[in-house]
Design a protein around this nucleic acid. Structure first.
Lengths: 354, 354
DNA sequence: TTAAATAATTGGAACGTTCCAAATAAATCC
DNA sequence: GGATTTATTTGGAACGTTCCAATTATTTAA
């Protein structure tokens, strides 16, 4: 819709910014009164409020939060939410629900990511603190240390970890019940008769890997099944990594009949490479995963996966953060988000046509 | 990794915040000097700089940007980036690259979404302005009016539209070459021999819909092909919508042999419902789409789609924004991001095994 | 050695708001 | 109608920084 008319550039001449004082003068009232109106105090008469409001509109005044915050003792209603990647599908879900939950509570979320780099996380958290936001929800990058967290926590700055946690750090966290989720998924495969089951993906330097892995190991051990070390293939999760991982474990042992994927993203890669190799997922190979992304119910075959509701993550994390925002000395809590196995087609439990 | 040791709650006793003045006193120097060190001015001696830096560390001082910004005339190095949804796959890509490009340029991005609601957009943009961020990159929600944009632009606040633009608004924008992209994709289907081609998805209240639709119509018209109005099925894009849309157009005319999807997300739905209906995509039905999401090269069949590089979007938008941040009176520009047809399997041009 | 130039440091005003205590206006009571 | 209460409005100090002009310390030039 490219218009051909001449562009009408608004002239921005003398850009003297209009302050509360200007509004007051324009209306013929004191700046204190204008301030009162802005905070809609009920100790200002309806008539003057009306006048002032009109004056604000007429002068084109915009409130200056920085100046306000400087004086105000009240904590900011702005919070930071930092995930591990802006285009990592599960993080996108978290972002989405955090926004929803935050706005519902009247607090304004400001998102960012650490891109899995501690240095970026350190820099951005510093900036959040400099801006005196009310608190931060953080999915800690690898190599985040307990002492770093301690320094922040000790300074009275509210922070809650989400999705992961720094090992041995005892700071507030909201994490999925990773062990239980994978335990149940693995058990499901075992009940379907599988014995040679591999575990694909996950970074060894992140807490969720160890939790999920232990769920897998526990289920295998309880069933008396062997877990050769080559059955475990840790790798940063991605579609490509899923392709690589499956190929690798099958090279080691072609008779592997089932795989537990660290995430749905890994599973997508597994589905893709399986097709190329002529392996029919659901009959030749059983696949279970973790996350339950929106695409997972319409993949081919539909993915059997462990669901963790992102909305619960978000709600709990924000609630918890608010506790610390109101009471910095409150005791650190660790909340567990429950998991649920969504049985679909890729595990072979349900028939479907290839 | 639930430790059983007693949690060691840091005591946050008297939380008197330490200011620049405190640091100065502690070091035995004036606050001006400390300020100078903070802005690492070169007019402070190495010795005192060292002393001050140590003092900052010892006192646990954190810089207060709000106070600084109050005095400073320089615009903030913080910018707002508002997309239409935090978990919309293509938006996620945009977010990701915007972060990368922004940080590279030393500017700090603060993300949010309007969730396709003008009211939310209005509220959040207001807050951005109140925080005096340097500028904002915006994917405008439906029903965003030119006059609203005009008010912002007129106030001297730098803003550039991304991905979409408000019709008849003549404000800075960075948009994909939507018409050309879909034109080429449709032409490709026509060259493969298709005649009955439908167009699925897109919201009529958003600019990109009309641009993409016109690319389709132009290609059809040039080839002398008829476009019954029922061949066009506008709907907000989603996987579910893709399922619905295909079913609907086939109900109207079962002999339709190809579809142009508004987005990859729509196409995912089309692939899914096709499988259920026993339609083989690539032979029975040709499918082309728009976006080229990461999943699109590993779907089954792989998706033929119009690629628009998110990294280019991001880079151009940020560059453009910086122009206005440095020179608010600069002339509004409209930049076009080129498109490229990625021919894979779903269009039937390349053989593959079902 | 002294004057001039340069380097380093400093106190105080300013930024735009909120808070407080005090002043004023309006309403109520006897 | 005056005294009391209550509702509304107000000026000025404060928040923590940066900027500026001015001061002091150091170096260079003659």
């Amino acid at each position: 819709m490219v218009s051909t008319t001449k562009w009408n550039v608004p002239t921005i001449s003398e850009r003297k910014r209009v302050t509360l004082h200007d509004v007051a003068e324009h209306v013929g009232v004191s700046k204190s009164t204008v301030s009162l109106v802005l905070q809609n105090s009920d100790s200002v008469s309806a008539a003057t409020r009306e006048k002032v409001l009109r004056g604000i509109d007429e002068t084109g005044y915009v409130y200056n939060r920085k100046a306000a915050a400087l004086r105000q003792t009240m904590p900011s209603d702005l919070i930071g939410i930092m995930v591990n990647g802006l285009n990592t599908p599960y993080s996108s879900e978290i972002l989405n629900y955090c926004e929803k939950e935050a706005l519902q509570r009247g607090i304004v979320p400001m998102f960012s990511s650490n891109a899995e780099q501690f240095s970026q996380q350190e820099k951005l958290v510093q900036i959040y603190m400099e801006y005196k936001v009310g608190g931060i929800i953080l999915c800690p990058a690898p190599y985040t240390t307990a002492s770093w967290l301690d320094k922040i926590w000790r300074s009275g700055f509210p922070l809650v970890q989400i999705m992961r946690e720094v090992p041995f750090s005892q700071f507030p966290a909201v994490v999925a019940d990773n062990r239980k989720g994978v335990y149940v998924a693995t058990q499901h495969l075992i009940q379907l008769g599988h014995q040679k089951i591999a575990f694909l993906g996950g970074r060894e330097d992140i807490s969720d890997y160890h939790e999920r892995l232990s769920g897998y190991k526990d289920a295998m051990n309880e069933a008396g099944l062997r877990v050769p070390s080559n059955y475990i293939f840790p790798i940063a999760q991605s579609r490509q990594a899923g392709r690589l991982a499956l190929k690798s474990v099958l090279e080691y042992d072609a008779s592997i009949s089932a795989v537990v994927c660290f995430s749905d993203l890994m599973a997508y890669g597994v589905l893709s490479i399986s097709r190329e190799l002529g392996i029919k997922v659901g009959s030749d190979l059983a696949v279970v995963a973790f996350d339950d992304l929106p695409d997972s119910s319409i993949t081919h075959p539909a993915l059997t996966t462990v669901q963790v509701e992102a909305s619960q993550f978000a709600a709990q994390a924000i609630d918890l953060l608010q506790v610390y925002m109101n009471k910095p000395q409150a005791k650190p809590e660790r909340l567990l988000v429950p998991t649920r196995l969504m049985v679909r087609e890729s595990c072979g439990a349900n028939a479907f046509n290839h």
